[in-house]
Simulated scan of single mutants.
Amino acid sequence: MSKRDLIIEKSMEILSERTIASTSIQDITNACGISKGAFYLSFKSKEELLIAIFEYIIKDMTSKFQSILSLQVAPKEKLTQYFVLAFELFEKNSTFISTHFRELVTIVDQDVTEKIQKHFLIADNMTLLLLREAYSSQIEDSQFDLLICIRGLMKGYAEFIVFQKQPIDYYELSKLLVNRIDILVNANLKTLITKEMYEQKNRHISHIQKNDIIVEIENCKEDYVNDSFTIDTFDLIIEELQSEHPRKALLLGMSSNLKTNNHLRWLSVLLKQFCDEM
């Protein structure tokens, strides 16, 4: 684990019970067993750390969602497992999110907002892939309406779980959600949210660019200086991305290799998304 990830994970533990204002950098460095100088090599301030934690949570969730796509199960069971994972991850992070979301809103700028929105767009694309696999041509016109409906259903149940603190069987809840989606699909209702409307909303958010992946690789390299195989993999990916016509099959192969490493799953997601958009 890199020093940056260590700081993030230890800070999440501390900040799940305290505000950012009541937590000193000394508290964080003591928990990590590092010096203040080491902290400032990774983060300029507590505010920058808070932004990094939220991004870390979103990356972790999106990386784990990616693993659902390759499950060898029936499409609707895959969709069910996707919802189960979403509720489990929400429960795991709900205390931190509810405590610090307002603090985050007050400190983010436009660049950070767009970066976070890009992560959510990747998650949306995964949901759409699962829906298309489960319902095929039935949802050609309604898939974006369904996406909005699913967000609303999940948000409502998530709020109930947090505030009512009732024990919930996430698998049974997720099967119920899939049943609700079945009803919406088969009802053949008039579509409101079209593909054009959805894409217009996200047009200002750029797709995954080659440079996004190269920057991510450069950020990862220092943690693998003694792992020649991984460093060679990084170099091969960069070389391929910088070529005039990157080979999709090769990049997808590299993505599959990377996803076996928990700390490189986000890089794998970026590569897969880039290939899907080629």
Rank of each mutant, 00 (worst) to 15 (best):
T233H: 02
L147Q: 11
S45W: 05
E244C: 02
C32Q: 11
F96I: 15
Y157T: 14
Y157Q: 15
I214S: 00
I14H: 03
R247F: 03
Y170K: 09
L250Y: 07
F43H: 02
E47Q: 13
L176A: 15
K115Q: 12
R203Y: 07
E77A: 07
L104E: 08
I25W: 00
D235P: 00
T194A: 01
D169H: 04
L71S: 06
M1R: 10
T233A: 02
I116T: 11
Q143R: 09
L128W: 09
V185A: 03
T233S: 08
L130G: 01
T99R: 15
S2W: 00
K165C: 04
E114K: 13
T106Y: 07
T99G: 00
N219F: 08
V73R: 06
E9C: 02
V215A: 05
V108T: 12
I214N: 00
I205P: 05
K210W: 09
M12S: 06
M61F: 14
Q209L: 15
V162C: 03
A74D: 14
I148L: 06
F234V: 07
R4A: 05
E240R: 07
E17T: 10
N257Q: 12
F96P: 00
N202Q: 10
I28K: 10
L79R: 06
M1E: 15
L104Q: 05
V185Q: 04
F83C: 02
S142W: 09
S256R: 14
K118A: 08
S70T: 14
D5T: 14
I28Y: 05
V215I: 13
M278G: 04
I14R: 06
R4V: 08
S35F: 01
A158K: 11
K76E: 10
K10H: 09
I231K: 01
N211V: 12
P167R: 13
Q166W: 03
F234C: 07
S94C: 05
